[in-house]
Simulated scan of single mutants.
Amino acid sequence: MTDELTELIQDLVRIETENPPGNEAAAAEYIHDWFSEQGIDSWLVEEPYPDRPQVAARVGDGDPTIVLNGHIDVVPAGDPAQWDYDAYGAEIDDGNLYGRGSVDMKAQVAIGMLLARDLAPEFESGDLPGSVVVHAAIGEETGEPGTKALLEAGYDGDYGVVLEPTKMRTATSEKGLAWYEIAVEGAPSHASRPDQGSNAIMHARPLLDAIEAYDAELRTRTDPLVEKAYATVTKFEAGTKENVVPERAVITIDRRILPGEAVEGVDAEVDDIVTAFAKEYDLDVSWERIRTYEAAEIDVDSPLAEVFRKHSQNVGGVAPEPWGIQASTDVRNFVNDAEMEAITWGPGDLSRAHSFNEYIKLAEIEAGYDVLDRAVRELLTSES
């Protein structure tokens, strides 16, 4: 199994699936073909985008149903010169498998695929009750509704496990995020006659101060599992040419949202800041929310979470304390949209994701397969 698992991860990593622009199709077709070769029912799902299919597979046909979810899109690899290994070479060195998407999260997709294949004979013989659904979703890296579309198409169940790298800690809650663009308008002029124009960069300076004060207030809001809320300025765009007074400045904010905070309430806070600034300085200012991942949470003592905490501790020595993930994942679609009990859990270290020389330790993924196998079996048989 170790060699087969390694080869499967390598095959997936070697298929470039960068998003943007959204190159998942080749990987989806590979996964669909792989399931077909194993004699497992799988479907290429063309929602939400016909040219970017995603995959759902099913083994078993009873209850309960456990959904193993992973995304196949990856962030761009960036400058090849910054990598010590080919970003899409899936090279192995000293027990580490390198490549974009290795830890986030094609290795975890691979263990979901293999576990479904390995359990299939027991479902078919009647030795194991219930069923397992596997998702190979698109668009997670850019907040697109890939997983949501799979769930809406009927590939749902009683439990969901989003197989992101958490060091096998079991996350029952996660922060959300919203990205806002705030535009401050001015008027252009030649830089040799700056007083004829209205410099949008200079106008934006006190707005940056207001956002900094907002962030300071947010840091006093805390959640016991995911800690603090934030509002971080991540982009500032202005100017068209060195000798032109800029007519527009756009500030981008990354707002991290705690469980229990509604997106509508965050919108209202941003609007209050913008409205007060525009009134005080008599400026034309507008804002737009351009991307949203809602926060999500389930009971920390849910049966799903307890089973995964137990086996992660027994196999991997992972402390069983309740935990929440500060990043955003597709678990929100399970909890908020499909109203399913779901966790974020998986082998690997998220701090390696999106980095040059991204890698997964093969020992980590092998232990992850073991935990996943034990946990899924317990969940299936405990309700029979």
Results as ranks from 00 to 15, higher is better:
Val245Arg: 02
Leu208Val: 15
Met202Phe: 06
Glu264Trp: 00
Arg219Trp: 00
Glu181Phe: 03
Tyr230Trp: 01
Arg256Tyr: 06
Ala238Tyr: 00
Thr234Ala: 00
Ala229Met: 07
Pro206Phe: 00
Lys228Phe: 04
Ala229Thr: 11
Ala229Leu: 07
Leu208Trp: 03
Gly176Thr: 07
Ala200Tyr: 00
Ala187Trp: 01
Asp254Asn: 11
Pro206Thr: 12
Glu217Pro: 05
Ile211Thr: 14
Arg255Cys: 04
Pro259Phe: 04
Asn243Trp: 00
Asp223Cys: 14
Glu242Asn: 11
Glu185Pro: 04
Leu208Arg: 14
Ile253Phe: 01
Trp179Ala: 09
Ala216Lys: 15
Asn199Lys: 13
Asp254Val: 08
Asn243Arg: 07
Met202Trp: 05
Val244Gln: 10
Gly260Met: 08
Ile211Lys: 10
Arg255Gln: 03
Ala204Leu: 03
Thr240Glu: 11
Ala249Trp: 01
Pro224Val: 07
Glu242Trp: 04
Val250Trp: 01
Met202Asp: 07
Ala171Leu: 11
Lys235Met: 06
Pro246Leu: 03
Glu227Lys: 14
Ile182Asp: 05
Pro246Gly: 09
Ala200Trp: 01
Ser192Asn: 10
Ile182Glu: 05
Arg248Glu: 03
Thr172Arg: 09
Thr222Trp: 01
Ala213Ser: 15
Gly197Met: 06
Ala191Met: 12
Arg193Gln: 12
Met202Lys: 14
Leu258Met: 13
Ala183Gly: 01
Phe236His: 08
Glu227Asp: 13
Leu218Val: 12
Ala204Asp: 03
Ala178Ile: 12
Pro206Tyr: 00
Thr220Gly: 13
Glu247Thr: 01
Ala216Asp: 15
Asp223Val: 15
Ser192Cys: 12
Lys228Cys: 07
Ile182Trp: 00
Pro188Asp: 09
Arg221Thr: 15
Asp223Tyr: 08
Val263Trp: 04
Leu207Gln: 12
Ala231Val: 08
Ser198Lys: 10
